[in-house]
């Protein structure tokens, strides 16, 4: 939305019509040299060069548009940018994503469990506002990918960079929850949430999922545990990022439902089972609606000045007029 700091400057536009008259139409203007081109009582004079006439009109137009541009610049034009400022704190969230090889199972269309989970997370993140969100991934080991932040672009870029088996072959659920808890412990948010997505059994790591859930509970974080994957055999295909070797096979067995339920309940969270992509999306919608806080917002209006653009346009147009008149049309008077 355009704004003007000094709209009174527009009063100068009132000088434009008299200026146009004085400069181009007044018969007593100084730069007018009466010269008879036509013979008395004969046909009037028509300029023989249409290009010159066109250049003259262009020059006049450039001059007055340039003047108007400078007057607009004098009025202090600006573009008002509205910014939403949050007055209260959101919920701190950590997404803990399993990137073990079993996540490559193709029972989640169109590609596999991992890609579906990633897509659902993307859509979940885009739907949040003012909630710092972080990302931890785990397989044989667990690693913090993004600390809780409001910079969702940074988060989504790092989410896109995740690769199956980047952290080895294994499922260290306890380590994933622990790393998430570790990075939430300094959080000053009233509500803290860990969303765990896994399709496997905890089979490695120095911290058991139960202990990790206790740690999460101690720092006041609720764990939403989401078990994903079908209950039947599924084809699996993935590439080891370290060796580049491609693996194909059939995946048997699922996740430990009782363990995930226990982890969730111990920390005051909930357990969900996602047997297909649609359910996974619905679960994230449910978590989204469960984890809401009242948002107090103030709209701050910031003005980006635009006067420089108008001044430069004015200079360019007036120089164009000057050059056409003096150089091209060879104005004498």
């Amino acid at each position: 939305m355009p704004t003007f700091d000094y709209p009174l400057a527009f009063l100068l536009l009132l000088l434009v019509p008299p200026g146009v008259y004085l400069r181009h139409f007044s018969r007593s203007r100084g730069n007018l040299l009466p010269f008879p081109f036509a013979v008395w009582r004969q046909a009037g004079f028509t300029p023989p060069v249409k290009g010159a006439l066109l250049a003259l009109r262009l020059s006049h137009a450039a001059f007055w548009v340039g003047v108007v541009s400078l007057i607009v610049a004098l009025a202090g034009p600006g573009r008002a940018v509205r910014e939403k400022i949050y007055l209260n704190r959101g919920i701190d969230m950590m997404l803990v994503l399993d990137e073990s090889p079993s996540m490559a199972a193709r029972d989640f269309q169109p590609e596999n469990r991992f890609e579906t989970a990633r897509e659902v997370i993307r859509s979940f993140v885009r739907g949040r506002e003012n909630d710092p969100i972080g990302l931890v991934s785990f397989s044989l080991e667990a690693a913090l990918r993004v600390p809780p932040t409001l910079d969702y672009d940074f988060l989504l870029k790092n989410l896109d960079d995740l690769r199956i088996m980047d952290l080895g072959d294994g499922t260290a659920i306890g380590m994933g929850i622990s790393v998430a808890s570790l990075h939430l412990r300094r959080s000053t948010a009233r509500d803290k949430v860990i969303i765990l997505l896994t399709d496997g059994q905890n089979n490695t790591g120095e911290i058991t999922p139960e202990t990790a859930a206790q740690i999460a509970g101690q720092i006041g974080a609720r764990v939403y545990a989401v078990g994903i994957g079908g209950r039947e055999e599924a084809p699996i295909e993935f590439t080891d990022p370290k060796t580049g070797k491609r693996y194909r096979g059939t995946l048997e067995g699922g996740f430990n439902e009782a363990l995930l339920r226990g982890v969730a309940e111990k920390s005051g969270g909930s357990y969900f089972y996602a047997g297909n992509p649609g359910t996974l999306g619905a679960i994230f919608s449910a978590i989204d609606s469960l984890e809401t806080v009242e948002r107090r917002v103030r709209i701050q209006v910031r003005t980006e000045p635009l006067h420089r653009e108008f001044i430069l346009a004015g200079i360019a147009l007036l120089l164009l007029d000057y050059v056409i008149r003096l150089w091209l049309l060879r104005e004498v008077l």
């Binding site: 600390p147 409001l150 910079d151 570790l182 990075h183 939430l184 300094r186 000053t188």
Partner: peptide
């Protein structure tokens, strides 16, 4: 290049 986004988690910066 942003390497650590603005965060309360000082541990991430320390890493």
């Amino acid at each position: 290049v942003p390497v650590v986004p603005v965060t309360e988690d000082h541990g991430a910066l320390e890493s």
